[in-house]
Computed example of a mutant assay.
Amino acid sequence: MNTSDWISLGSFISAAVSAWYTHKQWIKVKDKVGMIDHAGKAIEILPAWYTGRMMSDYWLFGLYTCDGSVILVHRILAISDDGKWMDVELSDPETGAKYRDTFSKVICAVASDRTTSSVQISNIVAAVDLQSS
């Protein structure tokens, strides 16, 4: 093999590796989950009564989980386009302390300025209002 053959072979290998890497990156981008923050569109993905209400109202809701915990939530911020996750605004620690006597396992924010959380929807077994007007 002469020099130009080695250069051609090197170029071919470089192009093949580049194409492989680009394909892997495309798969990652294609699989990324988008978040939907509009109540009307979220209801199309997660058609539960609480989806629209909890995205529109600022209230105190309880999300019961498979392990018996109750997540204290003020509202749903967004739902993933695959319907597996939702971003929520947790209640503050003071509200959480009020409900520790009512529920055995309460999940709330650790601080008033740290209220955003993501919840896996498949772990929710019930959603209820926890306050009345």
Score class of each variant (00 low, 15 high):
A78H: 10
I71S: 11
G68M: 01
C66D: 11
V70R: 03
L72R: 01
A39Y: 14
A48D: 11
D82E: 08
H38M: 04
V73M: 09
L63E: 05
D67M: 01
W49N: 02
L60D: 12
T65L: 15
G68T: 01
L60K: 09
T51P: 07
H74N: 14
D67V: 00
M35I: 01
M54C: 13
M54F: 10
G83D: 06
G62C: 07
S56C: 11
V73C: 15
K41V: 07
H74F: 06
A39L: 04
A39R: 07
L77C: 01
A39F: 12
I43N: 02
M54I: 08
G62W: 06
I79K: 10
F61Y: 15
L63N: 01
G83T: 02
A39C: 08
R53M: 10
M35E: 08
M55N: 10
I45F: 14
L46P: 09
A78V: 04
K41M: 10
L77V: 07
V70H: 01
F61C: 01
M35W: 13
A48K: 14
A78R: 14
A42R: 01
S69D: 06
C66S: 13
Y64F: 15
A42L: 01
W49H: 03
L77T: 03
E44P: 00
I76N: 05
K41D: 14
M55I: 06
D82H: 05
R75Q: 15
D82S: 02
M55T: 04
G68I: 02
G68P: 05
M55Y: 10
E44C: 08
D57E: 15
Y64R: 14
H38I: 10
A78Y: 07
S69P: 04
S69E: 09
Y58I: 13
C66K: 14
I43A: 05
D67R: 01
L72Q: 03
L72V: 02
G52P: 02
M35V: 00
Y64N: 12
D37W: 00
I43V: 15
T65D: 12
R53S: 09
L77I: 08
H74P: 02
H74A: 06
S80N: 03
D82P: 04
Y50N: 09
M54V: 06
E44M: 11
P47G: 03
M55P: 12
M55Q: 09
T51F: 11
D81H: 14
V70P: 03
L63S: 01
M35Y: 14
I71Q: 08
E44A: 12
K41L: 13
Y58N: 12
I79A: 08
W49T: 00
G62M: 07
M35L: 13
H38Q: 13
I79H: 08
M35K: 03
S56H: 13
W59D: 13
L63M: 15
D82G: 02
R75K: 15
L77S: 04
A78T: 13
G83C: 05
D37R: 00
I71M: 14
G68F: 06
H74Y: 10
G34C: 00
D57A: 11
K41W: 05
S69N: 04
